[in-house]
Amino acid sequence: MIITTIGRKTNNSLEAFGRFWMFCLRTTRWMFTGMFQYRNWRLVMPQFYEVGNRSLPVIAITGTFVGMVLAVQAYDQLHAAGFAERMGVLLNLTLVQELGPVLAAVMLAGRVGGALTAELGTMNVTEQIDALRAMGSDPIRYLVVPRFLACLILCPMLTLFADVCGSLAGSWIAVGLKDIPYEPYTYYTMDAVAKWDMGVGFIKSLIFGWIIGMVACYKGFHCRAGAEGVGRACTEAFVAIFIAILIVDFFIATFSTGLYKMLYGFKSLV
């Protein structure tokens, strides 16, 4: 009895997992085959506006305050240890590698992921997706690819924007309020934050963008009937994206530090 229940549950989740990857595969295929048609590009622009432009304020606020909080928290300890001038290293490395990508992605997931799932979910339960299919237009091409591309491309750009806001806000606290001299602060920062760290941050945010776009669209396309089904799909999408981001973040961090040590050896920052 219990075994059959467990068996059925595993079977169902395996099936859902397979469906998810099929969905990703079809999206990828349409991305390449649809690339050369003007009519498809016309669909992408409104989504870029929706995802990008509308998210700028939240991302700016997130970045700015995270930068300032980091600076305020770190200053006393570093000052006591006599490392205050190197505060920029700590601050910017944390921002570029960890907090920038993760927080920007989480904000984007909340702001856009939920809205995407709700929009597609409503279209699904009101038969609009069926109507698209019945008229011979692939809903993956028409609905999913533009939204997915917007998430994939804009997540790194918004992350970069959050990084810049945080970095500026942090240095304003450090140099402006805490009177750390400007030259050593920037010198140490420039010295420590290498292309490698930027690259890791970029790859992370690209993968997070992929997760947000794919999971939000998938959940919208496979939601249950009724307003309740749409609401539940939104919650599930957000939770799934959030957990996936944290787990993936851990694995990329482990992998990238390991790889760095293998390639260049250990780099001490102090």
């Binding site: 009101t126 038969e127 609009q128 069926d130 109507a131 299919r133 019945a134 008229m135 011979g136």
Partner: peptide, 13 residues
């Protein structure tokens, strides 16, 4: 499908 027209019960606009 391009040979078909389909009027959905709820319109599905």
């Amino acid at each position: 499908r391009t040979h078909f027209g389909f009027l959905f019960q709820m319109g599905a606009l």
